[in-house]
C-alpha cells in the first residue's frame, strides 16, 4: 500500500514539476522528463505489473496538462518503459552510467514516438529537423536528469522502507 501511495505521490509531484519548468530553446524545447523518469524508475525497480498503470497514469497527466490529444503520451511512455523493462535484466540501473544511457535512449525514443504521432495526425507544424533537434535535446536532458532522479527516488524508498529487492 505504501509503495502504491508513493508512486501516486511521485506522479502528482512529477506532473506538477514538469508543467512548471520552462523549456529551453537551445535544446529544441523538449519538456523536462520528470514523469518519464518516474515511469522508467518504476519499470526498472518495481514489479513488472506496476509499470503499465504508472505509464498510463503518467501519460494521462502529461496529456491533461498539454494540448496533446489523450493517449499519445501514454503510448510513448509505454513504449519507453517497455524498452527499459526489456533491458533491466541485462543492466544494473542503480549505476549512474546505466541510468544516464537509459534516460537518453528512452527520452529520445519517447520524443520520436510522440513526434511521429503528432506529425501523422497533422497536429504539429514542426519539420523533421526540428523533431530531430528535440530528440537530441531530450536525450541530453534524460541523460542529465535520470541519474539524479533515480538516486532521489531510491533514497526516498530506502527511507520509507519500500525498496524492493532486485527482481
Amino acid at each position: 500500500m505504501m509503495a502504491f501511495l508513493l508512486m501516486v505521490f511521485w506522479l502528482l509531484v512529477g506532473g506538477t514539476v514538469q508543467a512548471l519548468i520552462p523549456t529551453w530553446g537551445h535544446l529544441g524545447e523538449p519538456a523536462f522528463p520528470v514523469l518519464l523518469g518516474v515511469v522508467l524508475y518504476v519499470a526498472t525497480h518495481k514489479k513488472a505489473r506496476h509499470f503499465m498503470w504508472v505509464a498510463l497514469t503518467a501519460g494521462v497527466l502529461a496529456d491533461a496538462m498539454s494540448l496533446v490529444p489523450f493517449g499519445v503520451s501514454s503510448l510513448s511512455f509505454l513504449a519507453s518503459a517497455t524498452v527499459a523493462m526489456v533491458l533491466r535484466e541485462d543492466f544494473y540501473p542503480d549505476r549512474a552510467v546505466v541510468a544516464m544511457a537509459l534516460g537518453a535512449l528512452c527520452c529520445a525514443a519517447s520524443t520520436l514516438v510522440m513526434g511521429m504521432l503528432l506529425q501523422t495526425w497533422g497536429l504539429t507544424t514542426l519539420g523533421a529537423q526540428a523533431v530531430l533537434t528535440r530528440m537530441g535535446g531530450s536525450a541530453v536532458l534524460g541523460a542529465v536528469i535520470m541519474p539524479l532522479l533515480f538516486a532521489l527516488l531510491r533514497s526516498m524508498e530506502r527511507y520509507l522502507g519500500t525498496l524492493e529487492a532486485r527482481i
Partner: peptide, 14 residues
C-alpha cells in the same frame, strides 16, 4: 500563470 505545456510540443501557459 501556474504552469506550461507539460510535453513541450506547444508553447502554452496555464
Amino acid at each position: 500563470v501556474v504552469g506550461r505545456d507539460s510535453t513541450g510540443w506547444w508553447q502554452t501557459a496555464r
